[in-house]
Design a protein around this nucleic acid. Structure first.
Lengths: 104, 104
DNA sequence: GAGCTTGTTCGACGAAAGTCGAACAAGCGT
DNA sequence: ACGCTTGTTCGACTTTCGTCGAACAAGCTC
């Protein structure tokens, strides 16, 4: 299966912002920002796995994450370097903001 | 009339991001970022005045703008200092991104 | 006050987004 | 092959969002 992972510069900045403008997705990004890879099932934010899959797709198609397929699992990681290069300070500023609820 | 202008720290970061995640509103912010005050009628982005008023309300209630009433006009300005203090780098990063169309 | 300008508010409408359960696909173990 | 795990995709539903025209409010000028 082909995973759609666009170049970050091809994604409108409004799409990047929209991807971050959701509590569930921002929670995922906060977790990813700690570094390393996370299987999709890692993220439990009180939503069904269908919804979780949807949010991960939004993040991926906004150019924010990279996904590696391994068996039945998919490992997601944040494209932090590219993000910091194209939008220096954006991610840090967003992550520095207080989280609304249990984000882990 | 009371204008609702919340403290920026009381606005969830997702609301700030959502406010910026729209082409019309980002166009307004780009204009405001040049400094000074702008009457609401300044912003012509191919939308009706009802829609323009709506977007300005979204920006104001997200804590991004400050509005001064003067006669029949309302002058809007960006709350840049507060924004840069609470989310350092965010606005610069967003504004540095290429604009999608004529944003003036 | 009449008329004009500026901007907001009120439905209404269509489009988009978030959510879910159910079905499906693919890999791993035994 | 069978069952289990992991994750995606498919409707469907609800809510939110962007948009507009029309009506309204407030202030200015004559």
């Amino acid at each position: 299966m082909e995973l759609h992972e666009p170049e970050l510069r091809d994604v409108p900045v409004t799409a990047v912002l929209a991807a971050l403008a959701d509590d569930v997705r921002l929670g995922i990004v906060r977790t990813l920002a700690e570094g390393g890879e996370y299987a999709c099932g890692t993220f439990e934010f009180g939503v069904s796995k269908a919804t979780r899959s949807h949010h991960l797709k939004v993040l991926r198609e906004a150019g924010l994450t990279r996904t590696r397929v391994a068996g039945t699992s998919r490992f997601v990681r944040l494209r932090r370097e590219e993000l910091d290069r194209l939008y220096p300070g954006l991610l840090d500023a967003v992550l520095a903001a207080p989280a609304p609820a249990s984000a882990g």
